[in-house]
């Protein structure tokens, strides 16, 4: 039997909002260490990797490893039925073909359960090579979302240039050209407002805005976002999920024709 409980539905609702527009479906691989999901978007340009550790749940039981193929649009609809402060429990029998979501109101007066059919998804797992990235940028998640949204007005592509001075986001097209330069911060009082750049060597990479803007749907999950870059390898956009895990988006770069 599988059972996982969170005392607050907010985080799970935000996780679904962070992936449901990019992925139509995904397999939740459950084991006693937690829940993993890895899936490519339909165009195979980006990859989402979600990790939720079992010790981050208020109750977690996984008698046997279980892979649950979910239609993420349907799962998001079910989670819309939960209040943020509801307790949410995900339950499934071993080798079941359905999964149940139970929502309990804080005052215990209202208990709802939603059953959803599981799907047989034969999604192959991709190996993600360990990489020592040339540049790692930690910055406010809201700032990154704002830059991606603003620059998407100028072009389908954003050029990210990272040097020891700072990180620059550029886009140019018919409207004109835009450059947003962020310098490393040194004396900020709040950690989550800092811009920290660890640079082994400078990089210049080009990415499609539409995927970056899909990734920023995860912004409500974390104050900070981490961008990891190396020449000619996918960008990693990572949002930590406090006390539970993280969501990592990988985006293949664009190259000169």
């Amino acid at each position: 039997m599988f059972e996982a409980r969170l005392n607050n539905a907010t985080t799970l609702k935000k996780i679904l909002d962070a992936i449901k527009d990019l992925l139509n479906e995904g397999t939740f691989d459950c084991s006693d260490s937690g829940i993993q999901l890895q899936a490519m978007d339909n165009s195979h340009v980006s990859l989402v990797s979600l990790t939720l550790r079992s010790d981050g749940f208020d109750k977690f039981r996984c008698d046997r490893n279980l892979s649950m193929g979910m239609n993420l649009g349907s799962m998001a609809k079910i989670l819309k039925c939960a209040n943020n402060d509801d307790t949410v429990t995900i339950k499934a029998q071993d080798n079941a073909d359905t999964v149940t979501f139970m929502f309990e109101s804080q005052n215990q007066e209202k208990v709802s359960d939603y059953e959803m059919k599981l799907m047989n998804l034969d999604q192959e797992h991709l190996g993600i090579p360990e990489t020592d990235y040339s540049c790692v940028v930690r910055m406010p998640a809201m700032e990154f979302a704002r830059i991606c949204r603003d620059l998407a007005q100028f072009s389908e592509s954003v050029v990210i240039c990272c040097t020891k001075e700072g990180v620059k986001f550029s886009a140019s097209g018919d409207v004109g050209s835009a450059n947003v330069k962020l310098a490393q911060t040194f004396n900020v009082d709040k950690e989550e407002e800092a811009i920290v750049i660890e640079m082994q060597e400078p990089v210049v990479l080009t990415f499609a805005c539409r995927y970056l803007n899909a990734f920023t749907k995860a912004t409500p999950l974390s104050n900070q976002v981490q961008l990891s870059m190396s020449a000619d390898v996918p960008l990693v956009v990572e949002y930590r999920i406090a006390e539970l895990g993280h969501i990592r988006y990988y985006l293949a770069p664009k190259i000169e024709d």
């Binding site: 190996g127 990988y250 293949a252 190259i255």
Partner: peptide, 13 residues
């Protein structure tokens, strides 16, 4: 600019 696919970087495990 040509968009590469993620599968040209990450191979099936």
């Amino acid at each position: 600019m040509a968009q590469r696919s993620i599968t040209s970087f990450f191979k099936p495990a």
